[in-house]
Structure formats: structure tokens, C-alpha cells
Nucleic acid binder design. Sequence first.
DNA 1: CTGTTAGCGCATTCAG
DNA 2: CTGAATGCGCTAACAG
Lengths: 333, 333
Amino acid sequence: MAKRITIADVAREVGVSMMTVSRVINNKGEVSEETAQRILEAIDELGYRPSGIARGLASKRTLTIGLVVPDVGNTFFSDVARGVEQTAYANGYNVFLCNTDEDPQRESAVLNSLEEKRIDGLVLCSSRLDDTRLSELLSRFPAVVLVNRSLPGYDGKLVQIDDVAGAKSAVHHLLGSGHESIGFLAGPEVSESGKKRLSGYRSALGKKGIAFNPELVLNCFPNVESAQERASILLNSHPDLTALFCYNDLVAVGALKAATEFNKNVPNDLAVVGFDDIPLAELVTPSLTTCRVPRHDLGVRAIESLLDQMNDCDSDCSDIILQPELIVRRSAP
Amino acid sequence: MAKRITIADVAREVGVSMMTVSRVINNKGEVSEETAQRILEAIDELGYRPSGIARGLASKRTLTIGLVVPDVGNTFFSDVARGVEQTAYANGYNVFLCNTDEDPQRESAVLNSLEEKRIDGLVLCSSRLDDTRLSELLSRFPAVVLVNRSLPGYDGKLVQIDDVAGAKSAVHHLLGSGHESIGFLAGPEVSESGKKRLSGYRSALGKKGIAFNPELVLNCFPNVESAQERASILLNSHPDLTALFCYNDLVAVGALKAATEFNKNVPNDLAVVGFDDIPLAELVTPSLTTCRVPRHDLGVRAIESLLDQMNDCDSDCSDIILQPELIVRRSAP
DNA sequence: CTGTTAGCGCATTCAG
DNA sequence: CTGAATGCGCTAACAG
């Protein structure tokens, strides 16, 4: 790698001041058509690339936003990420995509590095941090949007899906098919959407006059292995279960596998409903009935909201709540 | 967000020079136990966070490496990413994870922003750029590791999987089961691993004395939809096909769906073999026979190699080639 | 063990 | 329309 060309090199080459070059780069201020042309040519010839960090230091804007998710490998988040990235790029921003591996400690670490990187804004998805720690960390960023996580006393923007409604519709669907003993594989204990889905689950049961039985609810990691294990425990202790509502599709697939273990036919012996509608949902056998979440939209809305904040256009102060949609497939017809 | 605390604030607070504070932050040079202690306390009290961009400007090291992949949503790459990230973090580096959406133009754009961010090193996976453009762009980075992509005349490090051997073993397996008319859904035309797998496919056929028929080879995007469509075309034009070797597992799932369309039973009427062994492979029905690729390892080796380069330890100049392993499941027993 | 002097590469004032 | 001076926050290279 040769020595880097700087703005000074370009200025010298053209015989103008650095400032003029800077203006052209940022197409700011008026520069004569002709000078601009010559500068552009010189930039091209010399292969000059402005230093983002020098610009950041001088202007206090890095044109970079941070996106934090628990697991990029999960389609849910990779779709949100795509929505965020596309919209961010279209607006001249780069995205720093960070993984926390569902680990709160890692999440703290990630937020710290992001702070040191002086990002202009942050989109934080499904934070697993407790309220205190979270607000403490968030206060260090110039602009923040929280996705799928609320925070009492927080005045920033929220983008969420209506978990309560989604869970309600899922359980309502199962009740409608005659199920009365419905278990819930509730995902991570710290997950807020988990809690909301639980509340939707309870509410749907309540409406039908069915008593809530906490024994039918088990937490699990949102992956296939953990879910399968927990589903087995549940099926073992409650052989009378005829349906399982699951925190998400990965968990539902785990439930499917557990059913196979127990020699239970899905949906005849056990109906299974997931959440999210990731591509896997229709690829497994039987295909999954699930609540479809507008993931890409979630990302787009989040970044739009963030860009608003960063531009001080406090246009739309209300939080954004997107509705999931029940997709009926084979696992719970 | 309050005004940022700077290193000067900390220095003033403690009554030492900025340099001493700097030394403590970087635990570099000797600082008396006691002063260090006081500085640490002040940092904590004031809530000081060093500015990464200022450090980067001054030290010419950003402690950030870039990781570019065609699609984070693909488990293959998200696993590689995890390997890279974990190892990078463990060594004090942050990772700038970037998506190209399989789009060469987007890839150029991403590399340009990464250059402007002055990353210390780059891990580039499965680049879709042509050789000329690629070497031109790579020369702008201080250290580079190419994953699953070679580049003639390039002197940097390469980390690859043995695609030829993998494809050979897959096709050999099919031939061993008596198949003689084997199609190949070859993935993106620009994909280098696609080309290598094609060569493995041809080589395995050749060894068995079966003539290569280019009509049995079709390119496709590495996703389920495109693969299903292309597989349909292939099955339609060549009803005699008894087996399909697929560029990767996503493509194989597409082939599975196409088989269903054509009312063909897998594996009885049509055997299907994938590549990668993503989690999906054992979740679909029938479960996929596939070549397992050590993805996490790929990431770890890549970043290790990159760190070596960045530290001038040109320890291991040879490229790294990891071997895939055939996993036999239901789709091609 | 600690401080001083520079300057990283650029954008922000202000002046022309 | 263009330029000069100044400093963003930090570290390198020397001193002491």
C-alpha cells in the first residue's frame, strides 16, 4: 500500500486551497464549474479517498450508524438488517452491524465500542440488557431507535411489532380448532417480546374462559436445540398437551423435532404454531403455521425514524407499531 | 447527550499530562501504580470514553477490521462471521460486517467505504468482482485475506475450502449409488467455488467414464426460489435425470421443492446432494445429504491469518485449504 | 516514570 | 466564489 494521498496533495496538484477541494468533495458551497471539474479529475487521477476518520474528527459526524442484533444468523435479524442497510446506504450512511450472540455482556461491550467509534446513531434490536444498564448506555449516543424493546422513562423512538396481538391471534386460532391444553415455549426469559407474547397467550386463553396454568409455560433459548430439549420436558410432564405455541419459528422447529421424538404426529396429535415466518417455516415438514412479522419493514422504519432524529426533524414523535399476520400452514390448520 | 469528556478533562482532573492518561488507556509505557490508579478512577467518575476516530487519526490504526460477505442471512456466511468476530474481539479488534447482496456494484461501494473508514485489515468472502477490479480495490488495503476466492497474481493470503474435492466426493457418492444421469445446479456464474465444484463434478464423472453433458449444468442464484425455478427447467428438459448435485444447501432445497412440483419422490426418483451443511439441511424433509464445510473454522483461520499479516509476522505464507466432509442423509442415501 | 512539542487529515469558522 | 487560520482528540517521538 503506497502512502496515502491527502486533500493537500489534490489541492497542490490543482493549484487551489484545501478548502476548495473540500467543498467539492462535500458539494457544499459554490465552486466554479471549471475548478470543480479540474479538482474532480485530479482526485480521480491521484486516486484520492478522503479519510473518514479525519472527516469525523473535524466535523463530528461519521456518517456511520450502528446496528446491534442478538444474532445475524437468525433470518429475523438479517432481514431487519437488510432493511436498515439499504435505507441507510440510500441516505449516505454506512452501517456498523454488530452481533451480541444473545449475550448481555457482549452487548455492553459492543455498545462501548460503538460509542468509541462515534457513530451518529444507533438502532438496537431486542436488547437483552436490563432497564438501568440500558438507559445508562443509550444516553451516550446522539440518536437511538429501539426495535422490539421498550424502556420505561425513555424518551427516544420505539419501533415494535404488536407481539400481544400476534400471540393472541395465534392462540385464538388454536382455540378455534378445539385445542384447550395449549403450551407455550416462551423464549428467553429476558426477552421483552417473550413477555408480551405470554400476555397475549394469557389473554386469549382468558377470553375463552380457560385458566392459565404456569406449568405449561417454559422458557428456552431461541434456537432449535434448546427448544427441542425444553419441548421434550414439557411433553413429558404434560402428555395431555394438544398444542404448542412457540416463541419463534426456530423454537417451533425444535418442537416439531420433539414431537417426532415422542412419536406424536403434527398436527394430529400436536399442533404447533411459530412466530416470525422465516423462510424455514415453509420448508420444514409439516410447514409451520406462524405469525408473519414484517421484518424488512421493521428495519426500514427504524432507520427512517433514526434519520429523522439525526436531522432534528422531530416530525413523528409517536412510536411505530407494526402488525403481524397469521399465516396458516400444515402444522396447525 | 452531554458534551463529550476528553482526555484533557481527565488529565486536568488528576493533575497530570494528557500523555500519562494516554499511557494508562493503552497500558503502554510505565506509569506508577498509584498515578495509574488515580487516572483510572477519574476516567470512571467522569465517564470518559476515548474517541476511536481521534485515536485512529493520530495512530493510524483503527483497531477495526472489515468483513465483507455476499449475504449475512445465509448461515454459511453468518457462521464465518461469528468465527471472525469472536477471534477479532479476543484480539482487541472490532469488526465492520458488510453485506453486498451478491451485487458486484454494491461490493465495490462497500469496499470504498471501508477504505474511507481506514480499517486495519480486510476479510473478503466470495468476492463477485472480476480479477482486475478486485486487485485494484484490494491494493488499497493494508492487509487482506481472501476467503473462497483466488486471484491470479495476488500475493496475499487465501483461505479456502477444497471445493473440487468436495464436489468429487459428492458426485462419487451418487455414482456409487448407481446414478449415471446427474445434473448440476451450479450457483452464480461468477462464483469461483461454483466453477471449482463444476470441475470436481466433471472429474468424478470422467473417472467413471461418463461423458460430460453441458446441458445438465445450469447456473442459478444461491437461493431457494431461483434454484427451484432452474431445477424445474432442468427436470423438464431432462426427465431422465436421476440425481442433482447442488451448488449449496439452499439450492438443494429448491431442488427438493421442484421435485415435489414434478411429483418425484426424493430420493427414489431423484437423489439430491447439497453443499455446506447449514442447519436447514437436516431440518428439511427428506434431510439433505451434503458436503459439510467447516465454516466457523474458515472464519477463525481467516482472521488469524489477517492478524498475522497486520503484525508483520509473515509466519505462514502458505494458503489455507480446509477439507469438506460428506454427510450422508436421506436425500441421497 | 512523566511531560513537551508536533501533527494525523480534514472541516469550521471567518475573511477576503 | 475562494483562502487562511484554527482546532477536532489523540498519540509519536522525543526529551527530561
